[in-house]
Design a protein around this nucleic acid. Structure first.
Lengths: 134, 134
DNA sequence: TATTGTTATACTCTATAACTATA
DNA sequence: TATAGTTATAGAGTATAACAATA
């Protein structure tokens, strides 16, 4: 059951990001950089379980669109990433559209069911992220 | 959060199916045919939100492995699909492995949280499958 | 020597279109 | 003509390997 739900959310994310000229991955990168400015490319890629190769082209796009900035870091091999004000606005707008759809989707659940559901998701997500014991 | 969890389950499914010489999609097809024998290829593909083109090669594989049978239907354009006893055994074995992992994953949740979670999933899955209102 | 970012290459998965045989 | 199954082709997405600059 999880896969159709996940696919639906992915589709909505892709559409919301697309309305602002981004792919789903580019939006995800934008969101991570907004939340944790100052990281380098490899760190952002790792946070998303993404690829350090593919993030290059996405950052090219984000930079050309004036949403993210790359600057050389203290270790001059790495790029320090930050979002521009425009980038933050776009990120917020896309996030709002996604959250609106999530609210619609969760509307059929009671308040308590919804809370339990989200808590359970958090537990499972955490468990999946730590590959210990497996 | 949903996407990492979904990805984890997908990875486990792929591995479990792989140990029996199948892909995840081939296992999914096998499971649908086992549950609803007598359907044709297009119907099975639709039930999985899969492709009527790609199911051809998968059924070739399943048939060569002696797990599924294609027979001409009343309408002789279509193939009636059934599982062989061997197919049912393989399907059951893969399903057991997947369920074992699901149980492990859900182990951290209390019994009531788990029940609420699964119920919520069912509600959301149903909602996602009917494209009404969107 | 190892690491960051980058680029090039190949491979897998998926979607689209065309063909056949039946209806 | 329309549909089920099949096949061929092209495209997107992804992974792997090699490179330059820096440590």
């Amino acid at each position: 059951m999880l896969m159709p739900i996940s696919r639906d959310l992915r589709r909505v994310e892709e559409a919301a990001a697309g309305r602002h000229g981004l792919t789903m991955w580019q939006y995800a990168i934008l969101a991570v950089v907004a939340r944790r400015p100052g990281r380098n490319q490899a760190e952002v890629a790792a946070a998303l379980a993404y690829s350090k190769n593919r993030i290059v082209g996405d950052l090219d796009h984000l930079e050309r669109a004036g949403l993210v900035e790359r600057r050389p870091g203290a270790d001059r091999r790495s790029n320090v990433l930050t979002v521009t004000p425009a980038g933050r606005r776009v990120m917020t707008a896309i996030r709002a559209e996604i959250r609106h759809h999530e609210d619609e989707l969760l509307a059929k659940l009671s308040a308590t069911a919804r809370r339990t559901f989200v808590t359970a998701l958090r537990t499972l997500d955490e468990q999946v992220r730590r590959p210990s014991g497996r």
